[in-house]
């Protein structure tokens, strides 16, 4: 029996907390519910859970502040839940270190998939870097900086490769525009999101990805990009 994952649900609405908890327990997780930011921080300062599901609208604290507080000492994965569907809020939470974001109301399937992706990503981080990313016909050999699609090697410029590498490093998760720009073009270039769109477009072309029917790189309008999660093997 594998070790059960501990999930901390920070949610002040008992009904929502209940059904999230039920869904997680059904899928083999162990969950604990707290209703306030203070409780959340108290628990996180003790034994860390494996993942935190955080509601942004708590009675005592702003969720954004909780993310910042946790990130001050821990890299525990955080998935943010909120009724706020404003893009700025999503981007802010991601920028502050949240790993993913779901807007209420959300589907349970979607939710569980996100939890899985985030945890897998952490696993990989723990078991050291994998040498290659592999999804459908796309293979990125991170050690040799080689990319191939359908077995044929594709030549990428350094910028295109760097862009792809940043996405692959967080495969399955949203990478915000600002983060991509910062990682690829350096600090201070966060404003130039149209560079990003142009390079993503070129990258898609080279990877044989149709922007109308993307298979590899997905656009999250107003937030960032996400490369599809690795094939589960």
């Amino acid at each position: 029996m594998t070790l059960q994952r501990q999930v901390l649900i920070v949610e002040d609405e008992p009904d929502i907390a209940q059904f999230i908890s039920a869904a997680l327990e059904n899928n083999g997780y162990v969950s604990r519910i707290v209703g306030t930011g203070v409780d959340c921080l108290r628990i996180c300062s003790g034994k860390l859970p494996d993942i935190v599901i955080l509601d942004l609208g708590l009675p005592d604290m702003d969720g954004q502040e909780i993310i910042r507080a946790i990130r001050a000492w821990s890299k525990v994965p955080i998935i943010v839940l909120s009724a706020r569907d404003q893009e700025e809020q999503k981007v802010l939470a991601l920028e502050r270190g949240a790993d993913d974001y779901l807007t209420k109301p959300f589907g349970m399937k979607e939710f569980l998939a996100r939890v899985r992706v985030v945890l897998r990503h952490v696993n990989r981080r723990e078991t050291l870097q994998e040498a290659a990313y592999c999804s459908r016909d796309l293979i990125v050999d991170l050690a040799r900086r080689k990319v191939s699609v359908g077995g044929n090697e594709t030549r990428l410029t350094p910028t295109e490769y760097n862009l792809l590498a940043v996405l692959v490093a967080k495969a399955g998760q949203i990478v915000t525009h600002a983060e991509l720009l910062r990682e690829v073009w350096g600090r201070g270039s966060e404003e130039h999101s149209h560079y990003l769109r142009i390079y993503i477009q070129r990258l898609r072309q080279k990877l044989g990805d149709d922007p109308l029917y993307p298979r590899h790189i997905f656009t999250e309008p107003g937030i960032g990009y996400r490369i599809s999660a690795e094939d589960e093997t």
């Binding site: 769109r197 477009q201 149709d210 922007p211 109308l212 029917y213 656009t219 999250e220 309008p221």
Partner: peptide, 8 residues
């Protein structure tokens, strides 16, 4: 890029 917008 319009196709990207439509796709998303």
């Amino acid at each position: 890029f319009p196709p990207e917008i439509i796709g998303s």
